[in-house]
Design a protein around this nucleic acid. Structure first.
Length: 426
RNA sequence: GGAGAGGUGGCUGAGUGGUCGAAAGCGGCUUCCUGCUAAGAAGUUAUCCGGCCAAAAGCUGGAUCGAGGGUUCGAAUCCCUCCCUCUCCGCCA
């Protein structure tokens, strides 16, 4: 959510900044509604004021008998008028909030222009690409090695659900534990949040109300399956005022994630890249406004270190304004190399949200100089997506004999076994 | 799921129709005193929105005692609906 005063007083500048995004967002209707609301609010306040005055005179008990009825009458008339003005005021307020919730964050100045991912800027690359004559796709290789059962996944749920079998399940679990241990050893406090969350959480981080169709919802309970751990973890301190000394706060969290992939028909239909349910370890930071740019860099770096520890070649990309997520003001994607596809694919997305989510979720801190509570800044990034990591390991570390060398850092989580063969892990 | 109790300021907790944005205590902040590891005294201490103001300060209006509605000139207080928490029972990994 953007600052209403900022929109009101700099609507042209805000409009211009938002124009860098796709989607034709305009604050004009919001500015008009705001002016209208303030007019109505002013009348409403005057009515309430007079009404309060009348009550006040009663309170003193010094009202002559003959005036009491007149005042009572006036108050009743005020109330009648209020019954017209108040619903209007409420309606305008509701609409204003709805409009505000529908406005995305403003791209930060260092974010490049551009409408789509072709305008994203590569920041750097890491790792050597594997030399493979005929790299096989992770889904073929993984099925052969008994890691995936795609058909039965569909039988149990529907398309884009997969059963991980034996070595596949074990490596997935090893990755989960490895990433959690990795990050909690680097100052990220581990949390394991609810996977069903209420609507307020989804609004707080920016998923709702704009993207209603993208998420799974429990019909009878007004609860949503989390599309990312970002949602519950960012909401941890919702409606709280923390002390400045408590910041920054770093959390890491594993959750399964659920996405309807509504707009993704035909994309990545084969394989383990795009699932309705997938595992991810997420990093979330809460910090002071002035430190969020630096925190963004270190958070992204922490995600990169996971890929480096695993030995997976990747590149970092700075997203252009048109490719930026709704709530983000700046975002780096980490893309891991998929030899069979011959391209880099997103495996982590690290965003700085500024105070955008903090306004929505009401995340504040009290400055140590004793000033008024202020909105903090929030950041998060995948640290990293586990399913895609498994797929990348299969593709990058496959060998000519059909086996896969599993990264050594996972050995402690696999009973020391790091060679994936058709007969399982050895 | 059943029965009961309850939701008040950063916390504890009083308040059953106006004198209540709210006692008291704790905590926080400021000043004073003293001076040595702690204590005393006084004052101060919620959030949000609007207006005046270039802005801050300040002044001023409005809202907020779980949420929404109702009764009344007037609601933390009375009535209705909903949500949540706690205790006991039941059920259950």
């Amino acid at each position: 959510m953007l600052d209403l005063k900022l929109i009101r007083e700099n609507s042209d500048a805000v409009e211009k900044a938002l124009a860098r995004r796709n989607g034709g967002f305009s604050v004009k209707p919001l500015v008009e509604l705001d002016a209208q609301l303030r007019k109505v609010q002013s009348e409403w306040e005057q009515l309430r004021h007079r009404s309060n005055e009348i009550s006040e005179t009663f309170k003193t008990g010094k009202v002559p008998k003959d005036q009491m009825d007149t005042l009572r009458q006036e108050s009743r008339e005020l109330k009648k008028r209020l019954e017209e003005v108040e619903p209007l005021k409420n309606e305008l307020e509701t609409r204003l909030v709805e409009l505000r919730l529908g406005i995305p964050n403003i791209p930060e100045p260092t974010v490049p222009d551009g409408q789509d991912e072709t305008f994203n800027l590569e920041v750097h690359r890491w790792g050597e690409l594997p030399r493979l004559d005929n790299p096989r796709a992770h889904y073929e290789l993984g099925t052969e090695l008994g890691c995936f059962d795609f058909q039965r996944g569909v039988k149990l749920a529907e398309s884009r659900f997969t059963v991980l079998m034996e070595a596949g399940a074990k490596i997935e679990r090893a990755l989960m534990n490895f990433m959690l241990d990795f990050h909690s050893g680097r100052g990220y406090r581990e949390v394991f949040p609810p996977i069903l969350v209420n609507r307020q959480c989804m609004i707080g981080t920016g998923q709702l109300p704009k993207f209603e169709g993208d998420f799974y919802k429990c019909a009878d309970d007004e609860l949503y399956l989390v599309p990312t751990a970002e949602v519950p973890v960012t909401s941890l301190y919702r409606d709280e005022v923390l002390e400045e000394e408590q910041l920054p706060i770093y959390h890491c969290a594993y959750t399964p994630n659920f996405r309807r992939e509504a707009g993704a028909a035909g994309k990545d239909t084969r394989g383990y890249i795009r699932q309705h349910q997938f595992n991810k370890v997420e990093l979330v930071k809460f910090c002071l406004p002035e430190s969020s740019p630096a925190e963004h860099e270190t958070l992204t770096r922490d995600a990169e270190l996971v890929l480096e520890a695993l030995g997976l070649p990747y590149r970092r990309v700075l997203l252009c304004a048109g490719d930026l997520g709704f709530a983000a003001q700046k975002c780096y994607d980490l893309e891991v190399w998929f030899p069979a596809q011959g391209k880099y694919r997103e495996i982590s997305s690290c965003s700085n949200f500024g105070d955008y989510q903090a306004r929505r979720a009401n995340l504040k801190y009290r400055p140590s100089d004793g000033g008024k509570p202020r909105f903090m800044h929030t950041l998060n990034g995948s640290g990293v997506a586990i399913g895609r990591t498994l797929a990348a390991i299969l593709e990058n570390f496959q060998q000519s004999d059909g086996t896969v060398k599993v990264p050594a850092v996972l050995a402690p989580y696999l009973g020391g076994r790091t060679l994936l063969t058709p007969d399982g892990l050895r």
